[in-house]
């Protein structure tokens, strides 16, 4: 019965995703009211603050356009705990990615507006100008750099596997050897990494969101979910009886995606990231959102890797 309820909720989320993707974003706009506590970090660095203004570039056509719109439209995940997660009770979008958007918006002196961007939508959303930036656990790689620009690396993730606690499989190679089904996300780097690791195309079961993939794992439709550890930790936390296993078999440097031709915005975001690394804000966000799941101390910010 719980599964049924979860399923109905998943369908509801999907419908909500469709409606927020359908052009107008009034629902998304109401997610982060200025007074909400989650948004307050952004308020701590308004454009007027002398310390912030000193080191950040201020001029540029894209920056001006965002300022005159009064909002920074930010594509994030809505179902990935610790990075981008829409809290079902408060309606706020929480997580590392979401707070990055708040920092950037705050530095620009505008409000952040959140739009759900699932893996397959991220690059099209940028190219169609439906969002200003994408902070949606997106790996920066060569193929994507041909399509869009990326900021500096704001987090270094690695791909692992998520299995049921009673599963005999320890590593991705076990999964390949056993020839079992592996679930992952459509249009993600994880999908192609699995093919490179030797998972047969026919054994890949792909879904639009990772919450659907986790549901499929619980139902026994696949034997493992594999993607970035940053996403898997949240899934393990949400669902009892699932655990993350093995060493990371890829390096996934996450960056903020920006449409090509907006160099001023890229430079601005890089400057914000540098500032966050220097003043300890990056480590604060890590401690708030990621440490509870990994239990590891904040590493050095990986910005210039």
């Amino acid at each position: 019965m719980r599964r049924l309820v979860a399923l109905l909720m998943a369908s509801g989320l999907l419908l909500a995703a469709c409606s927020s993707g359908g052009g107008g974003t009034p629902a998304a706009g109401s997610l982060a009211p200025a007074g909400s506590p989650a948004a307050s970090p952004a308020g701590s660095a308004p454009a007027g603050s002398p310390a912030a203004a000193a080191s950040l570039p201020t001029e540029g056509p894209t920056l001006d356009a965002i300022r005159s719109a009064g909002k920074l439209v930010c594509g994030v995940k809505f179902d990935v705990i610790a990075f981008g997660f829409r809290n079902p009770t408060s309606g706020d979008v929480e997580g590392f990615d979401a707070d990055l958007c708040r920092e950037i918006a705050g530095a620009l002196g505008v409000e952040p507006e959140f739009v759900e961007a699932i893996s397959a939508n991220r690059i099209p959303f940028l190219q169609e100008d439906r969002v200003d930036i994408i902070a949606s656990t997106m790996t920066r790689n060569e193929e994507r750099l041909g399509q869009i620009d990326f900021s500096k690396i704001y987090y270094l993730a690695g791909q692992k596997i998520l299995v049921k606690s009673d599963s005999p499989h320890q590593t991705v190679d076990d999964l390949v050897a056993a020839g079992v089904k592996v679930c992952s996300g459509q249009g993600s780097t994880s999908e192609t990494n699995l093919l490179d690791k030797g998972v047969a195309e026919a054994n890949l079961v792909l879904f639009a969101t990772y919450s659907e993939a986790a549901q499929a794992l619980l139902d026994g439709r696949c034997d493992a979910v594999s993607t970035d550890d940053s996403i898997l930790f949240g899934l393990a936390q949400q669902n009892e009886g699932l655990e993350v296993r093995g060493e990371a078999f890829t390096q996934e440097p996450l960056g903020i995606g920006i449409k090509k031709g907006k160099e001023d915005l890229v430079a601005f975001i890089d400057a914000v990231l540098d500032q966050m690394a220097a003043n300890g804000r990056w480590a604060e966000l890590y401690d708030t959102h990621i440490k509870p799941y990994t239990g590891e101390e904040a590493p050095e910010p990986p910005l210039d890797m």
Binding site: R3, L4, L7, A10, S11, K181, V205, Q215, A216, L218, D219, G220, R221, C222
Partner: peptide, 23 residues
């Protein structure tokens, strides 16, 4: 139809009715 398919995918899965995992 979409919700019907989601429903069957979960209900027929190995750990529920155990009929099929094949999409």
């Amino acid at each position: 139809l979409l919700i019907q398919l989601f429903f069957f995918a979960v209900v027929l899965a190995p750990n529920n009715l155990g009929i099929t995992a094949d999409p």
